[in-house]
């Protein structure tokens, strides 16, 4: 832990995106998040291809055993897929949409999950620690000694989803998926009517002045929904990692209090960091799920036409009370 503390005193320095060693190689800035995204893609594809082969139904010669998934990891993947599909996607989207969007949503879930979990492995910190040994060079003699410190070459590490840019790239896919579904289900005319508050409102000449306001709000909503996905993921990843880095820097901050104080504080902070690490694992899974689930909700909202529009905004009945539909999961934002 002391080694990690020695690698820096800025908690955000451990969290924010850094330039990778590939920057020198390619001649332009290649952040660690880019490297992590590529490595994460390779990992997620390798793991899921491996799992799919083990989930796949075997030859008939295996008898009943051909239906059994082989291997613990593949079984975990299967349980996740089956549970998320039957317990969440199907109830929220309906069987038709859930089946149609399964590849996209589960690809998104596992990709974000792998990127989040990769961020829990302190590879960049380890490289910095290793680099800290012998990175200082002294030049000159006597009072004219100048100490220079070489920048650490980071090949891998960091949390890709702690980069807002990466999350925006992913959320753009969610945006495309939502609009694709909207155009497929409603058509261009229906889609435009939806943006204007629905066909009934557009044809109601007495409320024409509301239409531009709703149009602006809806167009903003098109952007805000995926932007919220990106910001939520970014904030959760940065927040958790910052908290952990801050806890681990307490020992370094207490450096002037003596070895006993540093040891005691480091011990307590380390124990707290372990607890937060467990919470971080949970948050990594939860945020991947939230990203996928909200994308599914937004997609499903675009599949109910005007009915969806009423749900989305919470319509009032003749007695002026808000319909219970507005509190349904499909109407949640």
């Amino acid at each position: 832990m002391t080694l990690i503390l020695a690698s820096g005193t800025d908690p955000l320095g451990h969290v924010l995106d850094k330039s990778s060693a590939f920057t020198d190689l390619f001649g332009f800035d290649v952040p660690l998040s880019v490297v992590s995204v590529v490595i994460g893609a390779v990992i997620v594809m390798a793991l899921l291809v491996h799992s799919s082969r083990r989930i796949k139904t075997g030859p008939e010669s295996q008898g009943h055993q051909r239906y059994v998934t082989r291997g613990r990891f593949a079984q975990i993947v299967e349980v996740m897929v089956d549970g998320l599909y039957t317990q969440l996607l199907e109830p929220v989207m309906g069987a038709r949409l859930a089946k149609k969007w399964l590849p996209f949503l589960f690809s998104m879930f596992f990709f974000v999950l792998v990127l989040n979990v990769m961020g829990l492995v302190p590879l960049a910190d380890l490289q910095e620690i290793i680099h800290s040994f012998g990175s200082k060079h002294e030049a000159g003699e006597g009072a004219a000694v100048v100490t220079t410190e070489k920048r650490a070459l980071l090949w891998i590490g960091g949390t890709a989803t702690a980069s807002l840019s990466v999350n925006i790239g992913l959320a753009f896919w969610a945006f495309l998926a939502i609009q694709w579904q909207s155009l497929r289900e409603l058509g261009v005319k229906g889609w435009l009517e939806h943006l204007c508050g629905g066909a009934d409102l557009v044809r109601n000449k007495g409320l024409w002045f509301v239409v531009p306001i709703i149009f602006v709000v809806e167009v903003l909503g098109l952007i805000i929904k995926p932007a919220a996905l990106a910001i939520r993921l970014f904030a959760n990843m940065v927040g958790g990692h910052t908290l952990m880095a801050t806890l681990m820097l307490f020992g370094a901050m207490a450096g002037s209090l003596g070895i006993a104080a540093v040891s005691g504080i480091s011990l307590v902070a380390g124990a707290a960091a372990v607890v937060i690490s467990l919470l971080e694992i949970f948050v990594a899974v939860l945020q991947a799920f939230v990203f996928m689930f909200l994308t599914a909700v937004f997609i499903s909202q675009m599949s109910h036409g005007e009915e969806h529009h009423d749900e989305e905004h919470g319509h009032e009945d003749h007695h002026g009370s808000v319909s219970a539909d507005s509190h349904s999961p499909k109407a949640a934002h």
């Binding site: 995106d17 332009f28 800035d29 290649v30 952040p31 998040s33 880019v34 995204v37 590529v38 893609a41 997620v44 594809m45 899921l48 291809v49 799992s51 799919s52 082969r53 989930i55 796949k56 139904t57 998934t69 993947v77 299967e78 897929v81 089956d82 089946k99 399964l102 590849p103 996209f104 589960f106 690809s107 998104m108 596992f110 990709f111 890709a160 980069s163 840019s165 990466v166 999350n167 925006i168 790239g169 992913l170 753009f172 896919w173």
Partner: peptide, 30 residues
């Protein structure tokens, strides 16, 4: 732009690869 574009393109590749090689197999198995 680079991380965003990389994430967009890489996820596109991942999505196409998984949609072609993984999810049909998993869905069929289930």
């Amino acid at each position: 732009i680079l991380p965003a574009a990389t994430a967009f393109v890489v996820f596109g590749v991942v999505f196409i690869a998984l949609a072609y090689f993984v999810w049909p197999t998993v869905a069929k198995g289930l």
